[in-house]
């Protein structure tokens, strides 16, 4: 195999683009080379950079990184690497979808199973990209936001990552748990309808 591999894993923008540009302009690098990138933003920026410069490429999703195979045209590339990173700095970590939690169990059937499932669900949200913009809790769902909830640590972590947590005030009042809430913000039906209306899509487990 004489195909050269450029490993840009662990590198953030503009480094992967600088490496790509260097490889394209370096006559010692074969015309077909592979680029390894491990974050979505850099991958998108490099793809845009290649496309704008008329360089054909193909991206393969590997287990925990992307492999972009690049075919050089023989022409040198001059566009600025930094210019392709400006978008990434303003890119939001969260998407515009919302998770609506209406119960402290997931699905209907066994209560014991439902409790285990909702914990697994809440503890895994942060592992999946992109994060939701908000998580709304109403009716029995508010119980998951209490200080002694089994998922309180995960919710706090999500809040730190920028996910807003909205809790139905009427519900917290009904279950008499207002003073036990351990995360998020109490909100009312106006806010909840506003959030649900503006969401691109709503996930209700």
């Amino acid at each position: 195999m004489n195909s050269k591999i450029i490993d840009a894993r662990g590198q953030l923008c503009p480094k992967p683009i600088i490496l790509t540009k260097k490889a394209i302009n370096d006559p010692n690098i074969p015309n077909e080379f592979f680029l390894l990138i491990d974050n979505e933003t850099s991958k998108e920026n490099v793809e845009r950079f290649l496309k704008d410069n008329g360089i054909s490429h193909q991206t393969y999703q590997k287990e925990n990184y992307f492999q972009i195979s690049v075919s050089k045209t023989g022409k040198k590339v001059n566009s600025s690497s930094e210019a392709y990173c400006s978008i990434s700095t303003t890119k939001k970590l969260t998407a515009d979808h919302i998770i609506a939690i209406t119960n402290d169990k997931m699905g209907s059937g066994s209560n014991d199973l439902g409790k285990i499932l909702i914990q697994g669900f809440m503890n895994t949200i942060k592992e999946v990209s992109p994060l939701p913009q908000k998580i709304i809790f109403y009716n029995n769902g508010v119980k998951l936001t209490l200080k002694d909830s089994p998922v309180i640590d995960s919710l706090k972590e999500l809040e730190k990552l920028g996910v807003k947590i909205q809790i139905c005030g009427t519900c917290a009042d009904y279950y008499e748990v207002k003073d036990k809430i351990g995360c998020g913000k109490i909100s009312n039906m106006y806010d909840i309808i506003d959030s649900l209306t503006k969401a691109t899509h709503i996930i209700s487990p």
């Binding site: 503890n123 895994t124 995960s154």
Partner: peptide, 16 residues
């Protein structure tokens, strides 16, 4: 197991 942990005051996290 989760119930037992809870009863014994062990912080555990249910994960997939």
């Amino acid at each position: 197991a989760e119930r037992i942990c809870d009863k014994n005051g062990i912080t555990c996290k249910i994960v997939p």
